[in-house]
Design a protein around this nucleic acid. Structure first.
Lengths: 347, 347
DNA sequence: TTGTACGCGTTATCAG
DNA sequence: CTGATAACGCGTACAA
């Protein structure tokens, strides 16, 4: 309610001096500085954000776009963005696209006008639709869990995560592991597949069985579980924890023991992963940290966009165990080769 | 980038006309209206939010304060707020207090300056600390999942939910049900307790056993489960689904069957409730709807603050079953009376 | 119907 | 070190 003019008047100085005093600018006498501070304090003065934004051009706000706030993956990222923004004195404007890729460009545009920078979690927007959004308006953009040539990004060392998971499974004697993949258009699914095929190509006898693509949800996991069973898989690596939870539930429902009969590995390590029974072995991914890094990337003005890859770590819990030879007398499955979508894989 | 001045110039009209034309105001010739629209379109004109906010005094933004975005309860509310705000052409500024009640006043103040209205999910801030925040600044405030005299609110018909749960349990033959309560400072826990004691007082022989207060998390449920077992309870009603999930997990770990030996009922019906095994019987609460309503309450300018109570519905799944007489030869528990915190219960 | 001019609250420039 | 004063982009009385 109180304006800078009021403060200046109360302190007996000019607008300019009051402004300088409050913004810790140089060229203000100690006496005046104190006067102004006192006046501001007693009047309960708080600068008007819009007025400030109008002159400075900076809003003190960062935008965050996610497909679904209720998805624990994005919720964790959001918390990180939140925390870092607050630490650095900024607020966060959040937009949930409700998994609708179609509205993303519009949402981004609307949000883009009101923020100093934009953190984008748009795993499924095709690269060619994404690109114009990056360079379009002047505001900085940072990508989370995905990389693109034109914007800084923070993603995860997925290849290493896949390797850790595979090593773990192999050490347990599983020499053919099934992969329950995520959406075809997902950048990070492409990463997983690429790592998987690189790893299985070099490995020798052991192979990876492609179960196909599933929705990255509990339901997707249910579908995947049936396929894994039909293929006689003894271990299944999942696109993410939600899928893994679905696999677990389905296996339980169909009377197959985990990890007794089949081992399950997830990805992300969302909260639920450690609470379910059996507790999920999964590749822990520093989601909140990624959110924080993304915020910092916004103000990073290096010439070339920086691509940060955060380390991941397999956390072994109770959903994995040594392979049992006598599990099923099913004929050896004929492994389909891993399919990788060239459109998204190129990057 | 393009300003209204540019549009006006391109359209060959004055600023005022351009402004009027774009805001669908009357007193503009059809010809000019079209001219301006065309110019705006071709220049890719978008009004500067800060400039607009400065003159109109309205930011086109609503604020949302939650204790924890990663908590599915608040995430669901946030989605509702999000959706409704977007529909009505507003953006949402979100703040996660990370469960720290101490920072809430500060956060609210910071956010309050940048928004047209504030949606508050502060279940645990004591009433006397909350009150000044409501009437303080000029901006409207709406409360979610809690009521206070000075602000409109949207909460749930908790008493009815408790009744439905209790009826269900009683019909199954459970005549003493344990209550695993939430934090003492929680407004909605006080509601549950009040309903519980009203119900058990009038009911006659059957009673409610107070297990105490627990953190509203999985861990809290684990603690509660042990107490429930020690008390020989045959059914436990939980503060929320997270607690119920903890109870379920702990019972499983200790080898007691659900719902065979003990029935469990949750509250809220978060996504995980239907995915766990056994699927949780719980009181479904329209979280997203509450978020939407809260946004609408912000622009509701009735003299007295409106208090909306949304209906809830018990959804019966697999975690409840008839009481087994032969469950345990434990001595009849001596039910502690329900404790209600007068401080928060007064309201 | 249209245009001019002022004000919103700050920051920043430029004299004093 | 300090104080006028000019932007910033837009809405809107007021005048034409």
């Amino acid at each position: 309610m109180a304006t800078l003019r009021d403060v200046a008047r109360a302190a007996g100085v000019s607008l300019a001096t009051a402004s300088r005093a409050l913004s810790d600018a140089p060229h203000v006498s100690a006496a005046n500085r104190a006067q102004v501070a006192r006046a501001a304090e007693s009047l309960g003065y708080r600068p008007h954000p819009a007025a400030r934004a109008l002159t400075t051009g900076s809003t003190g706000t960062v935008g965050l776009v996610v497909p679904d706030l209720a998805n624990p993956f994005f919720a964790a990222v959001a918390k990180g963005v939140q925390a870092r923004a607050r630490e650095t004195g900024r607020e966060v404007l959040v937009a949930d696209t409700d998994e609708d890729v179609g509205v993303e460009p519009d949402v981004i545009e609307r949000l883009g006008d009101r923020v100093d920078g934009l953190v984008l979690c748009s795993p499924r927007l095709p690269g060619d639709r994404l690109a114009p959004l990056l360079t379009g308006a002047g505001r900085p953009v940072a990508l989370v869990n995905r990389e693109a040539p034109d914007a800084p990004s923070v993603s995860f060392d997925i290849a290493d995560g896949v390797r850790q998971a595979l090593d773990h499974l192999r050490a347990l004697g599983h020499d053919v592991v099934a992969y329950a993949g995520g959406p075809r258009t997902s950048w990070s699914d492409a990463e997983r597949r690429a790592a998987l095929s690189a790893l299985s190509a070099g490995g020798g006898a052991d192979t990876v069985l492609d179960l196909g693509s599933f929705r990255p949800t509990h339901g997707g996991g249910v579908q995947a579980a049936d396929l894994a069973l039909a293929a006689g898989a003894t271990a299944v690596l999942c696109f993410n924890d939600l899928v893994a939870l679905g696999v677990l539930a389905r296996l339980h429902a169909r009377g197959v023991a985990t990890p007794g009969d089949v081992s399950v590995v997830g990805f992300d390590d969302v909260a639920a992963a450690s609470l379910v029974t059996p507790a999920l072995t999964t590749v822990a991914v520093p989601l909140a940290r990624a959110g924080r890094v993304a915020v910092d990337l916004l103000t990073d003005d290096s010439p070339a966009p920086e691509h940060r890859r955060l380390p991941v770590e397999l956390v072994v819990r109770a959903s994995t165990a040594p392979a049992t030879q006598t599990h099923d007398a099913a004929p050896a499955p004929t492994p389909r080769p891993l399919t990788t979508d060239p459109e998204v894989a190129i990057r």
